[in-house]
């Protein structure tokens, strides 16, 4: 029951944030395309999902005091965070089908299905992959992204690590933004071969996510180590040691 209430609360908190971010990205993508002449629609689609996925967990799950005030306990919080993550990931996968056409429509006046365009433009290196695999890969990368936010939230559970979680989040988003920008810039240089351009293209779309996945693994290891240490030292039902 409590988990359900908290999931509902998290999603409720997320909604206005998501809408605001989408609005910002739509404006930004229009500006970059028309003013800076970047072909960055898809890049921004992915980038916004990076923000959308990580943001609620940093703001929501990384601030567990609300839940603790209402006697939520850590296992319940983890479960609630995981369920929220899965719901958002599923919604994200579905919404992607609508955002890119909307952006395309804003840019070109033509609504195009992003799945249909991905094979041609986004995944140049993986163009031979079946369409379903591409979509699956996309979804998995998004899930990795969300996992990162989830871990940020968990890191802060009851340990007053909100600042650390926020710092990790900012470093990642800042880093990812720089990487994407670099890749886009590299792609503009004519002296690079088509292969480099393709790599740049791929990087622009996915490097941030791939690095994020690697970072997630690192953070996960650190987090697990911290948990193990805590479990070893925290008294459980009056006994020390692993529960």
């Amino acid at each position: 029951m409590r988990v359900k209430v908290l999931v509902k609360y998290n999603l409720h908190t997320l909604l206005p944030t998501t809408l605001a971010l989408l609005l910002v990205v739509l404006v930004f993508s229009w500006l970059t395309a028309h003013v800076m002449h970047f072909n960055s629609t898809e890049t921004l689609t992915y980038f916004v999902w990076g923000l959308v996925f990580a943001y609620p967990f940093v703001l929501g799950m990384a601030n567990p005091d609300f839940a603790f005030q209402n006697s939520m306990i850590r296992p319940q919080l983890r479960k609630a965070a995981l369920i929220t993550l899965l719901v958002i990931a599923a919604c994200g996968a579905l919404t992607q089908l609508f955002i890119a056409p909307l952006q395309n429509w804003l840019l070109t006046g033509t609504a195009t299905n992003p799945v249909a365009t991905q094979g041609a433009s986004v995944f140049r290196l993986t163009a031979s992959m079946p369409l379903t695999s591409q979509v699956l890969m996309n979804w998995l990368l998004d899930l990795a992204l969300g996992t990162f936010g989830y871990i940020c939230g968990l890191l802060s559970l009851g340990q007053n690590k909100r600042r650390t979680a926020l710092l990790i989040f900012l470093v990642w988003t800042g880093g990812a933004a720089l990487l994407v920008l670099l890749a886009i810039l590299l792609r503009q240089l004519p002296q690079f071969s088509p292969l480099v351009a393709a790599i740049g293209n791929f990087a622009a779309m996915n490097l941030g996510k791939l690095i994020l996945a690697a970072l997630s693994c690192l953070v996960m290891i650190a987090w697990l180590a911290a948990i193990v240490r805590r479990v070893q030292t925290a008294p459980v039902n009056g006994k020390k040691g692993l529960a």
């Binding site: 603790f68 006697s71 850590r74 009851g158 340990q159 030292t233 925290a234 008294p235 459980v236 009056g238």
Partner: peptide, 27 residues
């Protein structure tokens, strides 16, 4: 006591059961 923080050592019990991540106790 309310389980928002974890103690470095020692224990907090409600009727003999630890309150740490104990839903029944925290209720």
């Amino acid at each position: 006591i309310n389980n928002r923080l974890l103690a470095d050592r020692g224990q907090i019990t409600l009727d003999g059961a630890s309150v740490v991540d104990n839903e029944a106790a925290q209720n």
